[in-house]
Design a protein around this nucleic acid. Sequence first.
DNA 1: ACCTGAACACCGTTCAAGT
DNA 2: ACCTGAACACCGTTCAAGT
Lengths: 187, 187
Amino acid sequence: MARPARIDRTQVLAEALALADEHGLESLTMAGVAGRLGVTPMALYRYVASKADLLDGIVELLLTEFPPPAPGLTWRKRLGALASNVRASARRHPSVFPLLLERPVATPEARQTRAAVYAALGESGVPQDRVAQVERLVSTALLGFAVSEVAGRFRDHSRRQLDADFDALEGMLAGFLQAQVGVETSG
Amino acid sequence: MARPARIDRTQVLAEALALADEHGLESLTMAGVAGRLGVTPMALYRYVASKADLLDGIVELLLTEFPPPAPGLTWRKRLGALASNVRASARRHPSVFPLLLERPVATPEARQTRAAVYAALGESGVPQDRVAQVERLVSTALLGFAVSEVAGRFRDHSRRQLDADFDALEGMLAGFLQAQVGVETSG
DNA sequence: ACCTGAACACCGTTCAAGT
DNA sequence: ACCTGAACACCGTTCAAGT
């Protein structure tokens, strides 16, 4: 007989993310997640295929934290808002955020956000045949900075310096966009 | 009585790195490393304090793969050579390279390489009081790209496209340096 | 000084069994 | 349909003991 489920996949992923946020990635264990849900570890395997699948799910959950920016703003403000969202998300989830750089993600949300970036880049004057590459370089630089800031190389830098670096990063990327405007076709 | 040691720390780190390169990070286990050295897992604890320490050691070993570029070249060629070395190292060690972004490193080698970059940036015309920040942004973009390329988001891109992206990245960074030349002091 | 055997706590995962 | 108990292979780590 159908019994009402006490948990679902969304809850599993949410508790897993919360656990990692609070106690670090090495505390993210099946038993730990199960404990938070008042359930035995084995019950989780109805909702995630394995721990690797659990991690993939967390990464997809992370992606929902920077949705496509609201239309109506200038392309500049839209890209700026997106960059701020990414950075804020990294700060909320320091131990899990690096996974974003290590796993290829192709969820509908990710695709939608990328499409929004494409549109903004197009408006900025970047030629259509360069838009995809420019998006890759810009998002890579942004993600690399966010990871360095929260999980690594810049861990003991002051907040003041990190903010200044982030501003400089945005300046670098803005200059790069500018330089692409009106450039001829290339590989 | 002093007996000759059958292994030393360098060997432990080298075998650990080789194991990760060949079979991935999740195969990097104390028993696995020990097996390669013909020794029991417990023997390793004379040379590494813990598995975390082993990973730190591997990261330090990685850093030795991109030493300061040979003097005598122009600053442009020195930075280019360094960037190529970093990228090549990432390709050799795809599963371990991401750790570089996640762990703060302050070995003498790292310091020496950074000093070489500072010197090159100075020669390029970047004002002294901006050199440190510029180095941070440039190396972050480079590492972020290398990680994306070997361990993550760009995993299934063609070699041709990756090479084109790398060229474009170098162009972006060169443009950024150019823009710094003669800029006034800032925070 | 260097390595091993035995032992421990912990982990992910399976499968048959319970409701 | 959903969860659990028992069980397994594996992992990092300790410590006392051997040479």
